[in-house]
C-alpha cells in the first residue's frame, strides 16, 4: 500500500483540520473505535490518530487533527487536497464492542469529539437511544454538530465560555443528561486524559459501565514496542493491540498522563526548530524537505 491521497480538507478552526484520505480497503475494513498510524513523509514520525469516520462507498477514511506539535503543524501546512501522505496503516486496535444497550451517553471533548462520532453512529444503528455531549472551547471552534444531530436522539453542547449550549465542562453536560435519564446503561468518553478521568468519576458512583479510548505514545501500533502500555486495574495492557477502548473505571489516568509527557522536551525542541525554519525560509519546508 502506498500513495494515500488527500481528497478533501476542511479547516474547523486555526488549529483543527479534517482530512479525507483515499483508502478503499481500509474504508471497508474499519469499525468504530479503531485508529490509524500516519507518517507524513519519509523522515516523519509515526503518529496514532483515531478514525473520525470512514465511508466504504466513497472508499475514504476521515481524520480530524489538532495542530499541537511539530508533526501535526507541519501536516496542517502541507496536507492539501491532491497531496499524499507517505504512510497510513490501519485500521488498528480492537473495534468497539457495541452491544445491545438501551440508552447510551456519548461524550466527546475537544479533539475527542470527532472519534466519538463513529461510535455514536454505531450505537444508533444498534437501536440504542443516544445522548451526545460535546465540549468545545467556544462557538468558533465547534464542528460536526449537524453530523451528531443526525445520529443522536439528544445533543448537549457545552462551551467553556457559554457562547454555545451550556456554559461549563462536559461533566456538567453529563450531569444534566444523567439527571434527566435514570436508565442510561452505558457511557463513552473520548478526549484529553484529564477530561476522561473526570467523566469516569461522574459515572463511577452511579455504576454505569463507561468506556474510554486511550491514545498514548506509540511507535509501530502492532504490539511490538510496548511504548503504549497503560495501567489497567492491576495489570499492564498495550493500548494498540489490547485496546484502545478500556473500562474507564479501571484506567490509571495519572499514570497515562505522566507517560504521555515522556518525550515532551524533545517534542518542544522539534517544534521550536521547525518554527524557526518557517520564519527563516520564505515558505515553510515542504514534504520531506529538511531545514
Amino acid at each position: 500500500m502506498s500513495n494515500f491521497e488527500i481528497v478533501t480538507r476542511e479547516d474547523y478552526s486555526d488549529v483543527t483540520y479534517m482530512l479525507e484520505i483515499r483508502h478503499p480497503v481500509m474504508a471497508k475494513a474499519a469499525r468504530a473505535g479503531q485508529f490509524v498510524i500516519v507518517m507524513e513523509h519519509e523522515h516523519g514520525e509515526r503518529i496514532p490518530l483515531t478514525l473520525a469516520d470512514f465511508d466504504p462507498d466513497e472508499g475514504t477514511i476521515t481524520l480530524v487533527i489538532q495542530a499541537v506539535g511539530k508533526t501535526t503543524r507541519e501536516m496542517q501546512q502541507n496536507c492539501q487536497v491532491g497531496t499524499s501522505l507517505y504512510a497510513v496503516v490501519g485500521p488498528m486496535g480492537i473495534p468497539s464492542l457495541i452491544g445491545k444497550r438501551k440508552k447510551v451517553l456519548c461524550v466527546g471533548g475537544g479533539l475527542g469529539v470527532a472519534p466519538v462520532y463513529p461510535q455514536a453512529r454505531a450505537y444508533a444503528r444498534s437501536g440504542a437511544y443516544v445522548i451526545g455531549v460535546l465540549g468545545f472551547r467556544n462557538r468558533n471552534v465547534m464542528f460536526w454538530e449537524d453530523k451528531f444531530r443526525a445520529v443522536c436522539n439528544e445533543l448537549i453542547v457545552c462551551t467553556d465560555d457559554g457562547s454555545a449550549g451550556i456554559k461549563g465542562l462536559v461533566t456538567k453536560g453529563m450531569e444534566q443528561a444523567l439527571a434527566a435519564h435514570a436508565d442510561i446503561d452505558e457511557a463513552l468518553a473520548i478526549g484529553p486524559p484529564i477530561m476522561m478521568k473526570a467523566c469516569a468519576e461522574v459515572t463511577r458512583p452511579r455504576k454505569i459501565h463507561t468506556i474510554v479510548s486511550l491514545n498514548p505514545v506509540m511507535v509501530d501500533g502492532t504490539g511490538m514496542c510496548g511504548g503504549c502500555r497503560v495501567k489497567i486495574g492491576d495489570g499492564i495492557k498495550f493500548a494498540c493491540v489490547d485496546g484502545p477502548d478500556f473500562d474507564a473505571h479501571t484506567v490509571d489516568f495519572d499514570d497515562l498522563m505522566a507517560r504521555l509527557g515522556r518525550y515532551r522536551p524533545a517534542e518542544q525542541e522539534a517544534l521550536k526548530k521547525w518554527e524557526e525554519g518557517c520564519r527563516i525560509g520564505s515558505a515553510a519546508p515542504k514534504n520531506g524537505e529538511r531545514y
Partner: peptide
Amino acid sequence: SLNGVLSANELLTRCNLMRARDFPNFDTPM
C-alpha cells in the same frame, strides 16, 4: 511505568528504523 523505562524493541525501533538518532532531522524523538 516510570518515564525512562522502555522495551529494547522501542529503543531499537526508534533508533534504527525511525532514525531517532538523527533527531531532529528525523522527527521521531527519543
